[in-house]
């Protein structure tokens, strides 16, 4: 475990906590894409299949349980909580996210490390996570005023995989083992998808104005 990896996991944890905080305390999911939350729940469900078979460390298992639990509870809140679901903007959150799942599954069936169920599911989760933010970014472009918590959530979510890239570079130079190239590519694509958001987020922070993405 290196500092980049720990920073990445803590940033990811912070993003989840910010979103849970927003939804649980102010009972609102305005500006939050349910589609992205559903995609992330699927990402964790398909990536952490080994949670019962391969024990790596207490930290690893605890973090997996947190990410699984939080992503599914956020989906539940937005779908079923009697107050929260009223603030869900389903007319704006219209990205057809199954059009993301199908290509990712097809790609995982053709491009993977080993053709086993677990390995294909794991590869699918990497490809899916790379594009999972798209419904949320589309929704932000339609949502005129993005509230701070939602902006912080997306920023932290994008930053975590960026920190993982530094972790992969560090491990490449310091460890005999290596991270599979599929992980590298999916992680870089994922981080690049946030590039324009990061730009506008930084601009709004620098000029101390409300975050707005161009339509």
């Amino acid at each position: 475990m290196n500092i980049f990896r720990l920073a990445g996991d803590m940033t990811h944890l912070a993003s989840v906590l910010v979103l849970l905080l927003k939804i649980h305390t102010i009972k609102s999911c305005a500006g939050v894409s349910l589609k992205t939350q559903e995609l992330y729940a699927l990402v964790f469900a398909t990536r952490y299949l080994d949670i019962v078979t391969d024990f790596i460390s207490v930290y690893n298992t605890v973090m997996k349980l947190i990410f699984l639990g939080s992503s599914f509870s956020i989906v539940w809140y937005i779908r079923h909580h009697r107050v929260v679901r009223r603030s869900y903007d389903k007319d704006q959150d219209t990205f057809r996210h199954y059009l993301l799942m199908i290509p990712c599954m097809l790609l995982a069936l053709f491009v993977h490390e080993k053709f086993t169920f677990k390995e294909v599911m794991w590869t699918f989760s990497l490809y899916l996570e790379a594009v999972a933010i798209l419904p949320q970014l589309v929704l932000l472009q339609r949502t005129r005023n993005i509230d701070n918590l939602t902006g912080q959530y997306v920023f932290l979510l994008g930053a975590y995989r960026g920190l993982y890239i530094f972790n992969w570079i560090y491990r490449y130079f310091t460890e005999p083992h290596f991270v599979h190239w599929i992980t590298w590519i999916a992680g870089v694509v994922q981080t690049l998808l946030y590039a324009d958001f990061f730009y506008y987020y930084f601009e709004s922070w620098k000029n101390n104005v409300r975050l707005q993405l161009p339509a």
């Binding site: 990896r5 996991d9 973090m63 993982y164 491990r171 599979h180």
Partner: peptide, 10 residues
Amino acid sequence: DEHHVVKDEL
């Protein structure tokens, strides 16, 4: 083996 791909990340 040397070329062992790690799967210890989240």
